[in-house]
Amino acid sequence: MKLVYVFDAYCGWSHGFSPTLREVASRHPELTVEVVSGGLFTGERRLPIREFGHVPGANAKISELTGAEFGDSYQRLIADGSFVMDSEAAARGVAALRQVAPTRVVELAATAQRAFYVHGRSLSETATYREIAEQIGLDADAVAAAFEAPEARATAEADFARAAELCAHGFPTLLAVDGDRATTLARGHATADDVARRLAASPTF
């Protein structure tokens, strides 16, 4: 059995879920965690952030429930409104980090989200992933090369297909997966204790 975490780096609820995921992973070091990008802002949803009028209110609710930080640089992006959240680019970035440090996927997902939600950094730019790599001690050249590689787009699409295969249409979704059987442990907001209770009751555990 393993845990599969389907998230989107541009999803505020996923940002708020990061501490829960870290706690769950720390309680269960025997379980592999697979991190999959879901593709929230792709196609016709790849629009300036001003088009998503619910975002400020949602962020306030996320912060209230989870304590998640939304930094000043990010707030300036919201106020300006022209920034475009491109989940395909973010998925390529997460995949690049994952390729270089596959055993650190939980940390990498959270760090990518902090780059955007706390520091206001675009997840479509190579420079952002260089900064992330340097911050957490990875090979920045290797991460940048993986992000820019021709096959990176296919990797992002494979993540989106994996999310669809798991019927994870809302983010974040945490699943316990054993072969063909998947049990939902969390969707949206949940505490580590909530997940622990559901995991203990799961037929896959």
Score class of each variant (00 low, 15 high):
S87N: 03
A163Q: 00
Y10K: 08
A186V: 02
R46L: 10
D178F: 04
D180G: 15
A144D: 11
I78K: 06
T42I: 10
S202F: 06
L199I: 06
A142G: 09
D139T: 06
R181A: 14
R162D: 03
V33M: 09
R104V: 02
T20F: 02
F171R: 10
P29S: 07
G81S: 05
P48V: 05
T183K: 03
T155A: 15
A91H: 00
R92Q: 08
D80S: 10
R92D: 02
E69L: 11
A201D: 13
Q99T: 13
A161D: 14
T32A: 15
L40K: 06
R130G: 08
D80Y: 02
V94Q: 11
E51V: 09
S37R: 05
R98E: 12
M85D: 07
T42C: 04
L40Y: 05
G57T: 07
F171C: 09
V100E: 03
H189I: 13
A112T: 12
V24D: 00
F7V: 15
T183C: 10
I62K: 02
D80Q: 07
L21M: 10
S122L: 06
L40C: 08
Y129G: 07
C11I: 04
G81H: 05
M1D: 12
A112S: 14
I49V: 13
L108Q: 04
L65D: 09
A79M: 01
T155H: 10
R27I: 03
T32D: 14
E148R: 11
S87Q: 02
R50D: 10
T128I: 08
S122E: 05
E30S: 11
A9P: 11
R198K: 13
S202M: 03
E69D: 11
G57R: 12
L65V: 11
T20S: 06
A25I: 08
L185P: 01
A60W: 05
S63W: 00
P56H: 03
D72A: 15
V6W: 00
R50E: 12
S26Q: 14
T191P: 13
P29L: 05
V195Y: 00
V118C: 10
V24G: 00
C167D: 15
P150H: 09
G137V: 08
G12Q: 05
T173Y: 01
I49E: 09
D141N: 15
E125A: 15
I78A: 03
R197T: 15
C11P: 08
F17R: 05
E51L: 05
T191V: 12
A140E: 12
D194I: 07
L185H: 02
T66N: 06
H28S: 04
F116H: 15
A145Q: 12
R92L: 03
V94W: 01
A112K: 04
G12Y: 01
V4T: 14
V106W: 01
F160H: 04
C167Q: 15
L3W: 00
V106L: 08
A182N: 06
A201E: 13
T155R: 14
F160Q: 02
P172F: 02
G43A: 01
I49A: 08
A79N: 07
R76L: 09
H28Q: 07
A79T: 10
P29A: 11
G67R: 04
T155K: 14
A96H: 00
L31H: 07
A127D: 15
T103D: 15
T103V: 09
Y10D: 12
A90S: 11
